[in-house]
Design a protein around this nucleic acid. Structure first.
Lengths: 224, 224, 224, 224
DNA sequence: TACTAATCGAGACGGTACGTCGGGTCTTAAT
DNA sequence: ATTAAGACCCGACGTACCGTCTCGATTAGTA
C-alpha cells in the first residue's frame, strides 16, 4: 500500500503507529470524516506529520488500516480460536435471521458506524480504496454466507443450481443499502422478512394440489 | 436550506444558475468530486463565488441540484407525456429483467456515473443530503417497482402478503451495492438471475410431481 | 468633483445627502476610517449604494464633503457674522498664543479628530484629495495668520522682509506635525514656546545695552 | 508584535524575508500603497501568504520593516564608520542649510517617496504604527539636530534657555508639512529662509546701530 | 392634475482580496 | 535512520466590499 522508496519498516515506531490509529478513529468518531485532517491526527497522536506521510498515502489509507486493525482486534477478542462463523443448526432461515440480527445491532454501534461509513463513502468514489475495503473487510464476512449456503445446498434446503455468492446478496444488499443510503429503517422484522422472501421467493408456491389454476404460468417454464 | 437573510429569489439570475449547473457537472465528470471546488465552479461558470454561496450551502448541495435538474431534463426529453414507467406485459419476470437491463446500461453511462457516485458517497456520510438524494432521485424510481409489484399481486403472480417496498430491494439493492461498492461485476446475466432468485426463492420448489425436474433448468449454474 | 454624465442635481434628495454625511462622520468616529465602508455608510444612512456612487467618486470624497459641511456648520454656529479671525490686541505674541491654545483644544476634540486625521492621512497619499483638503480647509485658516502677520508688519513688530506665509509655518507646522505624526506632546506651554522662539529667534539677542528692555524676560527658561 | 503561538524565529527563512521586503517596496513604488496587497506581495516574492501572516501583523507592518531595512542598508552603504551626522563648521546656519538641502533632495527621491508617504499616512491614522515609525525612523534623525543645536549653545550661537528638541521643529516641521500635506512648494530657497527665520526670529532686531536698518547683518556670525 | 422621467432604496451580480486552514514537502535537532 | 516539530509554498475556503447593474416605488418638475 506504500509506494514511495520504501522506508525501513524495521525501524518503524510501533508506538507512533498505534497512536495514529487511535487518533484517527477517535477523530472520525468525534468530528466526522471530512473534518478529520492529517494535521489533526498528527497533533492528537503527538506525532510529526511526516511520520504519517511516510507510511501512508492518504487520510483514507490511514483510516482504512486503523479500521482493519480495530476489526482484527475485535475478532481476536470475540472468537479466540475461530474467526466468526454462521451457525448451522440445520434450519437455514433461522440461522440467517440470527446472524442478521447481530448485524443490525452492529450497524448501530457508534464505535463502528463513523469509520465504516467514512470508508464506504470513500470507496464509492475512490475505486482503488473501495476494492481494498471490500476485499479486506466485506468479502471475508460474505464468504461465511457462501459457506453456509453451500451447506444448505448439501442438505437439500437450497437448490443446487443457485449461485451462493449471488444468493447472499438477496438479504445482505438490501440491509446494506438501507444502512448506507438511509433508504429505509432497519429492524429485526425487516431482516427476518428479507430472509423469508429470499428463501421462498415472491411468487406463490405452486399449490401442491394440481387443481390450482392460478400459479405463475406466465414466467419461465417453471416445472413441466 | 438557506439561513442568511433570505435573498430575493425573484431577482435571481437564471443565466448564472444554469452556468453553475453546467460547470459543476462538467467538473465532476472531468476531475472528480473531491477535486471539484467551489472556486473552480465559479470560475468555469464565469460567476462570482458569492453567487454560489448565496444560493447553496455546500458543494454537495450545488451538485445535487445540478443533478436533479439534469435528471428532470432527461426525463422530460425521454418521456414527453409519461415520466418513465415499468412496462406491464403480464410477465413480471420479463418486465423486471428488461428494466434492469436498462438500469445496467445507465449505470455505465459516464454522463451520470460521476455525479451520481459523488452524491451517493456524500449521502453516505451526510445524512441530511442523503435523505434528499434518496427522496428526490431514488424513491421516485423505486415507486415504479412498487406499482409494478402491486399489479403483479392483483394478477396473482406475487403473493398478496408480500410488501412491495421490501420486495423490490431483492433485485434493486444487490445491483446497487455491486455498483456502489464495487463488490462484483454487473451484467445482464446477473440482473436476470437476481430476478429469478427473487421471484422463485432459493428453496427448492415443493416437488409437486415426484418426477418433476423442477428448478430453473434454463439458466444453468449462473455465477462466476 | 463629480465627473460622470452629471445627474440632475435639481432632483437630488437633500434628505439622503444629509443622512450620508451623518453616517459617514459617525462611522469614521466609531470604527475608524479604514473600516468605514461605502456599504456601511449606505446601510447606516438607509440609502442605496448607488445613491452614493452617483454623487461621489470615492469614500474619501464623501468624507471630505461631510467634513467640509461639518466645518461650515460649526463656523456658522460659532461666529454668526464673521468667520473666525485672529484678534489683534497689538501684542502679536499674545494674540498668537491665544489662538494656538484654542487650536490645541480643537485638536483634542474627538468630534473633529477622527475625520480630520482620516482626511489628512488620505491626503498624504492621494495628492488630488490632499490638495482639495488643503485648499478648502487648511488654507483659509492659515490666511488668517497671514493677515495678522501683515498687520504686525505694519505695526513694526515684524520685519518687513519676512514672508508671512512662511512665517506662520514656524508655529503652525510644529504643532501640526506633533499632532499628525505623534512626534511629541501638545500643550499650551509648547505652543507658547513656539511663538516665542519664532518671534525672537534662537540666536542670542545682541546685548545692545546691558540694561536692554527688549528680550523676552517674561517667559524664563522654557521647556523641559 | 506577534500573538499566535510564537513561531520559531531561528528557523525563519532569510530568503523569504528579503524577497518579501523587495516585493513590498517594489509594489508600493509601482502601484501605490492602497493597491499593494498582501496577496500581491506574496505572489511577487514567490512566497506563501501564510509566510507573511506568520511574521507580520499587517501590510503596514511589512512595509515598515521593509523600509527600516532599506534605511539601514542605505545608511550602512553611505557612511561606513559613522551613521550620519550634521556637520559642524562653526556656522550653525550654514550647516543647517546644507543638511536641509540634502533633505529636500531626498524627499524628491522616488525610491523613498512612495514608501515613506505610505508609512507616514498610515501612522497618522494608526497611532501604534505611527509611534514605531517615529521612534525608529524619525527621531534618530532629529536627534542629530538636537546634538548640533547643543553644540551651538556651547559655542554661544544659540541661547542656553532654548530647548533643542523644540528648536529643531522650527525648520523641520515646516518642511515636513509642506511635503506631507502638499501645502506648498519645496526648494532650497525655502529651507534657507526657514533657517534664517528660525535663528533670527521674525521680530526686528533691536537696531544696535541706529543707522543700519536694512541689509541682512542679522544672521551672519552671530555673537559679538 | 396628471404625466413622465429621474432618483431613490434595495440588493444581486462579477470580481478582488482578505485572513485561515490544511495539504504535502522539506529542514532541523534529538533519540 | 527515524522521529517530533514546524516552516515553507500552495490552493481553497467562506466572507467582506468593491463598483456596476437591474428592479419597482417614490417624487419632482412639466405638460
Amino acid at each position: 500500500m506504500v509506494k514511495k522508496p520504501a522506508p525501513d519498516s524495521a525501524r518503524r515506531s510501533e508506538r507512533s503507529r498505534r497512536a495514529i490509529y487511535d487518533a484517527a478513529l477517535a477523530l472520525v468518531a468525534e468530528v466526522g470524516y471530512p473534518r478529520t485532517t492529517i494535521e489533526g491526527i498528527a497533533a492528537r497522536a503527538g506525532v510529526g506529520k511526516q511520520t504519517i506521510y511516510r507510511w501512508w498515502e492518504s487520510k483514507a489509507d490511514v483510516l482504512l488500516e486503523a479500521f482493519l486493525d480495530l476489526s482484527e482486534q475485535a475478532s481476536r477478542d470475540a472468537g479466540p480460536e475461530y474467526g466468526f462463523a454462521i451457525p448451522d443448526t440445520g434450519d437455514l432461515a433461522a440461522d440467517l435471521k440470527a446472524v442478521l440480527r447481530l448485524t443490525v445491532d452492529q450497524l448501530g454501534d457508534p464505535r463502528f458506524e463513523a469509520p465504516s461509513r467514512a470508508l464506504a463513502a470513500e470507496g464509492v468514489v475512490n475505486e482503488q480504496l473501495g476494492r481494498v475495503f471490500v476485499a479486506k473487510l466485506l468479502e471475508p464476512s460474505l464468504q461465511l454466507y457462501v459457506d453456509r449456503v453451500r451447506a444448505a445446498q448439501s442438505a437439500g434446503q437450497v437448490r443446487r443450481d443457485v449461485d451462493p455468492r449471488i444468493a447472499l446478496e438477496l438479504w445482505v444488499s438490501p440491509l446494506a443499502q438501507r444502512w448506507l443510503q438511509h433508504t429505509g429503517p432497519i429492524s429485526y422484522d425487516y431482516t427476518d422478512t428479507l430472509v423469508e422472501y429470499a428463501l421462498n421467493g415472491l411468487a406463490p408456491r405452486t399449490p401442491d394440489v394440481p387443481s390450482g389454476p392460478s400459479g405463475t404460468p406466465e414466467h419461465g417454464p417453471v416445472g413441466p
